[in-house]
Design a protein around this nucleic acid. Structure first.
Lengths: 260, 260
DNA sequence: CTCGGTAAAATGTTCGGACATTTCCCCCAG
DNA sequence: CTGGGGGAAATGTCCGAACATTTTACCGAG
């Protein structure tokens, strides 16, 4: 427990419009502005927070993007929810962040297989890589109890040396692998990070913990957007987003079975 | 074919920032600003469009929300895609819009059943309604080839008279049904519209075309947000969003089987 | 050649003001 | 009681300006 319990972890100097949106969200959750009612008008909020209209509107826009309120011209700002719509599109700079998920997230192993066994993976995958790929697992991710995306995880133990190198430098390995997969498809991104699996993930994938591996995440989110923009390198511009051809039948029920 | 082919359907007077974002998007698609390059700086755009920075930034925000560009402080505005991330969260005022999907959308029937046969539907559903519910079908919706959401469609032929009434007035029927389902769960919305199914949908649901029916759409999108806010009434504030309890196992593979 | 600092460039944040458009509600005429 | 008009209220659009923060690139000292 931190010494000063009342201060959030990163209070710092949040922008004013973020402070206002946080304040309003707090009021919504405390029942000050119940769902179904309208928030005070913008001019009212300007007085309450001694701010400008632009800043207040920016705060309201944050809440709207979160799915908390819905603004309607001529009517007002309607409170529609107390919980934010999960924002899964985010950028990560550190591979560790790939393992951080929203709270209350759980994972379930749906299926396992070996690359090549599966009609999901057409000939596009290089045959040399094919031999080394060890394991595929489809994970269904549940955020707050609701499924929101699928994650296919490929572990390449044979690439352990490269993985260690990737942990430090990154770029060369990326380019090496990027050359293999040079086709890009929207809304599917292939993500790479080096590390070792631990805990539930290692158990699910039946990989020894702490075994250095090159892990490729292929994520698909129903929203159609890239779930992550991986920037393990120091230069975010070089974040790779090469992708596999998306087999439209890849999620047919034959492939998915609950392991319970 | 329209008489004047070059004019969009609703040119009207788009806001300036929308005109700018459209112009920039056009340039991106024409190759003026290829994916991976940076857009001109904001000050540059201000000169090009003889506008203010606020308006230019608003235009860039539109593109960012579309997933076309990614803005990075201190670096610039990076072009990341030529195609917009599907924006499925929208409001509809006319029930007919519920039938309008993004272009290139297709539907596949995944399973059929009768309400009550399924553990997905707990006792929360009133038994009187239970008898009248005729058909359930789960549709997987593919937008531009990518699955993005599931739609459960319930057709209630027994409600045909009410459906016709709903087609005109709307509100009373809403209230009548809303009284039955009074619990609200986030991210799941039950949507109602009256009409008749035609074409592929009628075929998929094995319902005669043009049979007046009360159709309930229960949509779930991986994004966690309501897919539609249905406002068939004249007062959007009364748009109904009552919902069913979300059974977390409802998408287990046992229930989903491809019909091919 | 490497490291460090510094300046330039780009987006982010904030303020102030003005007018446009939509919605809602009251009131009055019929 | 019904319909329409008009005003009030609320959000949307747009302009101008200033400073803050981050990133990049350059350049000089060692």
């Amino acid at each position: 427990m931190p010494p000063n319990a009342s201060t959030p972890k990163t209070l710092k100097d949040l922008p004013l419009y973020r402070q206002i949106s946080d304040s309003l969200l707090g009021g919504i959750r405390e029942g000050l502005f119940p769902v179904g009612t309208f928030l005070p008008g913008e001019l009212d909020l300007i007085e309450r927070y001694s701010s400008s209209r632009h800043t207040v509107r920016e705060a309201l826009r944050v809440l709207e993007d979160m799915g908390i309120v819905k603004r309607q011209r001529g009517r007002g700002t309607l409170v529609t929810s107390t919980e934010a719509r999960p924002a899964f599109v985010q950028s990560v700079r550190d591979p560790k962040e790939l393992f951080s998920y929203p709270e209350n997230s759980t994972f379930r192993v749906l299926s396992e297989g070996k690359i090549g066994d599966d009609d999901r993976w057409p000939a596009r995958i290089g045959h040399d890589v094919d031999r080394d790929w060890a394991r595929i697992s489809g994970l269904r991710t549940l955020a707050n109890g609701s499924p929101f995306c699928w994650t296919d995880i490929f572990v390449l133990p044979a690439y352990a040396p490269i993985a260690q190198q990737l942990g430090r430098a990154g770029v060369p390995v990326y380019e090496q692998i990027a050359a293999t997969y040079d086709e890009t498809v929207a809304s599917i991104s292939l993500e790479i990070c080096a590390g070792s699996l631990t805990g539930a993930r290692a158990l699910a994938l039946k990989v020894d913990e702490d075994t250095p591996s090159l892990v490729l995440y292929r994520r698909y989110c129903g929203n159609g957007g890239r779930l992550f923009e991986v920037s393990v390198t120091e230069h975010p511009a070089e974040s790779f987003s090469f992708a596999l051809e998306f087999n439209r039948g890849w999620q047919s029920a034959e492939h998915w079975s609950w392991s319970k």
